[in-house]
Write a protein that binds this DNA or RNA. Structure first.
Length: 291
DNA sequence: TTGTGTTTTATTGCCTCC
DNA sequence: GGAGGCAATAAAACACAA
């Protein structure tokens, strides 16, 4: 705010407002006027109309307002109009005391019933319309303040939620990293296990030609599946190429399904989702033929 | 003194309720 | 249709810096 308002502290009788009002307000006692429906308070004079009606009379609405105000006045219509037209056109501010009085009344009830409006106007020496306008503007200010409060509250809630969300994101990333590390460990272990199994087989495949080689060593390959009479000549080209063919195949020896238990079958045909803990393996040495 | 920003008072037009 | 409320706005009053 460039300026900011400093209200003059007038505890005197400025604009006809008596001293006792200040005392009353200082003592924080509620004037009977603050309570709707209460008995009339001792009236005190204040500023008279601050409204210039000359231009306003152009509109029917203002005419209505004036007639309404006339109804609320004790003086006659002619006298009232006369008084109105001789008011200075200057807009005058309410005194500190008047405002304090209105504020107190507003705290009690921010809506203004007609009787209370008239009584307030009488006691403050204002036009009832001025009182109504003051309440209207005051409600608008209250609403703006309330909106600001609500905004601040919502902003605080948003910031809190966002902080929680960010924390959760960090935790998620941390857990993700942990899963990756554990998966790597598992994969390494599995590879090592398979390599050790393979190393058991390899020496047999790499025997000297003078010895009788054992070509197949698979847990799933049963002894009776191998018919010694049908085994081709070892080391012949034909046998060699058949081995190569078998090595290219991803699943060279299909065991008889009826001969396998479910567990054995699963071990030979691991579901994709379960094989290697759900992680794809490009080349599976255990399932490949090597020699 | 003047320009500028803020606050307050008041008006206007529209809407809702009875 | 009248009364009253509200949002938008005008205009006066006021504070303050330059």
């Amino acid at each position: 705010m460039a300026g900011g308002r400093v209200y003059p502290s007038n505890n005197d009788t400025t604009d006809g407002v008596p001293n006792n009002l200040s005392v009353l307000l200082q003592n924080q006692r509620l004037h009977p006027l603050f309570i709707p429906g209460s008995s009339p308070s001792p009236s005190f004079l204040g500023t008279r109309s601050m409204v210039s009606f000359e231009d306003s009379l152009k509109t029917n609405r203002l005419k209505r307002s004036i007639f309404k105000m006339f109804d609320e006045q004790e003086n006659g219509y002619d006298e009232y109009l006369e008084e109105c037209f001789h008011q200075p056109e200057k807009k005058r501010r309410l005194t500190v005391d008047q405002i304090q009085f209105l504020e107190k009344s507003f705290e009690v009830d921010n809506k203004l019933e007609p009787e209370r409006k008239i009584q307030l106007a009488k006691d403050l020496g204002l036009q009832p319309r001025q009182v109504a306008i003051w309440f209207q503007n005051r409600r608008a200010r209250w609403k703006t303040k309330q909106l600001e409060k609500d905004y601040d509250t919502l902003l605080a809630m948003y910031n809190s939620l966002k902080a929680d969300y960010d924390d959760l994101l960090k935790e998620k990333d941390k857990l993700k990293e942990e899963v990756l590390q554990l998966t790597d460990k598992l994969q390494t272990k599995e590879n090592e296990r398979r390599n050790s199994e393979f190393s058991d087989v390899k020496p047999l495949l790499l025997q000297e030609p003078s010895q009788k080689p054992i070509v197949v060593s698979m847990a799933a390959c049963k002894q009776e599946d191998i018919d010694p009479d049908n085994i081709p000549q070892y080391y012949s080209d034909e046998f060699h190429s058949s081995l190569l063919e078998a090595a290219d195949s991803s699943y060279p020896f299909e065991p008889d399904q009826s001969d396998l238990s479910q567990d054995e079958e699963d071990s030979l045909h691991p579901p994709a989702s379960l094989s290697n803990f759900g992680f794809p393996v490009e080349d599976h040495p255990f399932w490949s033929w090597t020699y």
